[in-house]
C-alpha cells in the first residue's frame, strides 16, 4: 500500500483505478484514443468496455506514454489518453521530458499511483516512500501536472485536459486492488482493432 509522504501534494483521497477509468471513459464522446499500460491499467480499461479506440499493452513496461505520444503526433485532431502505473512510469521517466519538449496539446497522461507493483505481488516501488510523481512531471517540464484531490477533481481535470493548450498529466492515488477484467492476450487483434478504431484501416 501507499505510504503517504508529508508533502501537501500527496494529501489526496485514495481512489480506485476501475472507478476512475470508468469515469474517464464515460466522458469520451469524440472517439478519443486510450492507451492502457502493462497489467492493471489495461485490465481495468478492458473492463470498462472494449472501445475500438482502446489499445492494450501486453508487455513493454513503461511505454504507455510513448505509444500514446506517437498516436497524438500522428493524429493531432484526436485527443489521446494514456493510463500508466506508478511503477511503470518510474521505468521511463525520460519520456516526460520528451513530451514536455514536443508539447502535444492532444495528449493526457494519467498515473495510477498505488505505491506498489501490485500485479507482481504488491512490493513497494523505490519511489513509494520518497518521490512525488507530479513534482517529477513538473520538473520534467510538464507544467500542467496535478494530483486529483478526489473523484470530482479528477473529472474536472479531465474536462480541462480536453481543451488544454498543452499536454496534461493527472496523478491519482489509488488503493491496492487488482484490475477488474482480463484483457484477451491477442496482440494482432488488439492492434488491428485499434487501427480500425482510429480510421487507419478498413475491415477486411
Amino acid at each position: 500500500m501507499n505510504q503517504p509522504t508529508n508533502t501537501p501534494a500527496r494529501n489526496t483521497k485514495i481512489m480506485n483505478r476501475f472507478d476512475l477509468t470508468s469515469r474517464l471513459v464515460a466522458k469520451l464522446k469524440n472517439e478519443e484514443a486510450v492507451v492502457g499500460g502493462i497489467g492493471n491499467t489495461n485490465f481495468d480499461l478492458w473492463a470498462t468496455g472494449q472501445r475500438p479506440q482502446n489499445f492494450y499493452m501486453l508487455g513493454s513496461m513503461g511505454l504507455a506514454f510513448p505509444i500514446a505520444l506517437g498516436v497524438a503526433l500522428a493524429q493531432p485532431k484526436r485527443h489521446v489518453f494514456a493510463l500508466e502505473g506508478d511503477g511503470s512510469i518510474l521505468m521511463q521517466l525520460g519520456c516526460l521530458s520528451t513530451i514536455a519538449t514536443l508539447k502535444p496539446k492532444n495528449l493526457t497522461m494519467i498515473v495510477m499511483d498505488n505505491g506498489v507493483y501490485q500485479i507482481t505481488g504488491a512490493q513497494p516501488t523505490p519511489a513509494a516512500a520518497s518521490a512525488d510523481i507530479i513534482a517529477i512531471a513538473i520538473g520534467s517540464g510538464l507544467a500542467n501536472s496535478a494530483w486529483a484531490a478526489d473523484e470530482e477533481d479528477f473529472e474536472r481535470l479531465v474536462d480541462q485536459a480536453l481543451t488544454a493548450s498543452g499536454p496534461t498529466l493527472i496523478g491519482v492515488r489509488i488503493d491496492d486492488r487488482p484490475g477488474t477484467g482480463a484483457t484477451r492476450r491477442d496482440p494482432v487483434q488488439i492492434r488491428e482493432r485499434f487501427m480500425l478504431g482510429l480510421g487507419v484501416r478498413e475491415a477486411m
Binding site: 492507451v35 500522428a74 521511463q92 520528451t98 482510429l198
Partner: peptide, 20 residues
Amino acid sequence: PTAREEEAVGIVSGAWMAGL
C-alpha cells in the same frame, strides 16, 4: 531526440498504428 531507444520504439509504434 528521446531519452531511451525503447521510448523511440514506443513512439513510432503508436504513430504507425495511427497512420504515420
